[in-house]
Nucleic acid binder design. Structure first.
Lengths: 114, 114
DNA sequence: TTGCCAGATTATCATATAACCATTCAGTAA
DNA sequence: TTACTGAATGGTTATATGATAATCTGGCAA
């Protein structure tokens, strides 16, 4: 594992990585992922949870599924989506912690100026 | 710290997180970050390393700087950029490891692309 | 079969952004 | 001051992506 840790990535690999980040670069999709954090949900439930139109939810779910971030499973007439890779939450936590650091830093600077 | 670990994020916070992912969703910017991995570089050096036009490099650096992913420092007539937060590499490693896992499942498709 | 419902797909519009070129700004030296 | 150079900025074009409405599909029940 981790042949990537030392070596540089090729332009092609960078493209793939960028693509994954691009999938996460949408608040609507992050909201859907967050809604799925406690377990699988159907599309209808996600529509209710996100206050987005059904077509919109469906499209975002398609993008997430395409990049293997969610799994789908038929349950009778409905379809249940669930998180495919908990790594997503590690990613979000890293970014959130960074946000907190930046905020504290900004607050400290602000306080120092007064 | 990590008040974020349990709670849901507000739409506003999701927007900020998405924004950071959006900054990383560009192969050109990832390439610049990768080039900066071993230490600070000037804009000219980055232009050479990335094979991009100077204006393009400058704009991407501005985006990275705006989101506190790189720091800038004047050195006489030149400006040296450097990584502001090594967390970036943790992010990339997570995504790369995920790629490796996914690739094992569909090695043929990925190999064809390279 | 028909009707219904959950979900996917399509078409269209608007917005966002990257690449390129030319220009401008800022720092240094003569 | 002027000339030179590294870096930033503006404008334009092309492409990509998101939101919405309307339509289509596929499974289930009567």
């Amino acid at each position: 594992m981790s042949t990537v840790r030392k070596n540089r990535l090729s332009p092609g690999q960078l493209g793939v990585v960028a693509r994954v980040f691009g999938v996460l670069a949408e608040p609507s999709r992050l909201m859907l992922l967050q809604a799925l954090r406690d377990g699988p949900l159907t599309v209808t439930e996600l529509v209710a949870a996100s206050r987005m139109k059904q077509a919109n939810v469906s499209k975002h779910l398609a993008v997430l599924h395409q990049h293997h971030l969610v799994k789908r499973e038929r349950a009778g007439i409905t379809i249940r989506y669930e998180i495919a890779d908990p790594m997503i939450f590690s990613l979000c936590n890293l970014v959130c912690c960074k946000m907190e650091r930046d905020t504290k830093k900004a607050a400290a600077i602000f306080a120092a100026e007064i």
